[in-house]
């Protein structure tokens, strides 16, 4: 099996070498590409989360480094950015009340990560910070930049923690698997409460702990059919939607009496 894979990989590599002879002769710079089987995902009535598979390939990988498994790939599916307010409860006269708050701009609603290995084994924390990569390193832009840094730090940590707790920020270690020297498959988790909108899939390539290249693709997540119609009606024709909700309630009340009447 491993032999077959190596064979397939070497065949592929020689094909690539044939196509890009110049690149193969000079010191080749590695690249990364990803492709999605679909550019939109529909959420239907039965949706309770799903796994999304993303395929990708390395360009011009060094066969020696690939064999030693020193290439690492991190794939991220990042939801649309929205403003978020984080509030902290404090005790006032025995009652827990939201007191302090901190606003952040453009926080990705969801953030699913898939990696080849545990993140701390791939590269240094500083380079994650530089890349703003990973649920724990993602940079959160506070609305009021002049605030107290320790407060901002505290609320940033709370924001990450709440997002992880609700399953919107997730990490799938081992979610990226190499199928051959070039080809890899990433599985990212879509939470049941995944937001609709334009999501961005990004793939990061590391060689021996060094960041090499990034590639991205877009994915539209939307509600389908009935759910989509209801959502759209509620926002675009809100008055008629309200009237419909009232009529529905009255008809249900009336029918319920006819059907289940006991007096």
């Amino acid at each position: 099996m491993a032999g077959a894979r190596r064979l397939a990989a070497s065949v592929l590599f020689s094909l690539l070498a044939a196509v890009f002879p110049a690149a193969a002769q000079n010191a080749p710079t590695e690249g990364i590409q990803i492709g999605l089987s679909t550019d939109n995902v529909s959420i239907t009535a039965g949706f309770s989360g799903a796994d999304l598979t993303i395929f990708g390939s390395l360009e011009n990988p060094d066969p020696l480094i690939a064999r030693q498994g020193r290439y690492d790939v991190i794939v991220v599916l990042e939801g649309p950015g929205r403003p978020v307010v984080v509030r902290r409860k404090d005790r006032v006269l025995g009652v827990w009340i939201n007191l302090e708050s901190e606003s952040f701009d453009n926080v990705p609603v969801s953030y699913s990560v898939a990696t080849t290995r545990p993140m701390q084994d791939i590269t240094e924390p500083t380079s994650y910070k530089q890349l703003s990569l990973g649920a724990s390193n993602l940079y959160m832009q506070p609305t009021d930049t002049g605030g107290d840094p320790t407060t901002i730090q505290e609320f940033t940590a709370a924001l990450r923690e709440r997002k992880k707790a609700t399953g919107l920020y997730s990490e799938n270690v081992g979610g990226v698997q190499f199928l051959s020297q070039n080809l890899f498959r990433a599985t990212v988790r879509l939470a049941p409460n995944v937001p609709v909108g334009t999501h961005k899939a990004r793939a990061f390539l590391f060689r021996s702990g060094l960041f090499i290249k990034e590639s991205s693709a877009q994915l539209e997540i939307r509600k389908s059919g009935f759910e989509q119609s209801i959502f759209r009606a509620a926002h675009n024709y809100s008055f008629l939607y309200g009237v419909f909700a009232i009529c529905l309630a009255m008809v249900t009340g009336w029918l319920g009496r006819l059907v289940f009447r006991k007096d």
């Binding site: 759910e227 209801i230 509620a234 926002h235 809100s238 008055f239 939607y241 309200g242 009237v243 419909f244 909700a245 009232i246 529905l248 309630a249 249900t252 009340g253 029918l255 319920g256 009496r257 059907v259 289940f260």
Partner: peptide, 23 residues
């Protein structure tokens, strides 16, 4: 009606399930 027009927070699907059980 007012919640539907100002806040868009009426979920008819949820309401219908509750009503059906309720009546």
């Amino acid at each position: 009606l007012v919640h539907a027009t100002t806040n868009q927070t009426v979920d008819v699907m949820l309401a219908f399930l509750l009503m059906a059980g309720g009546v």
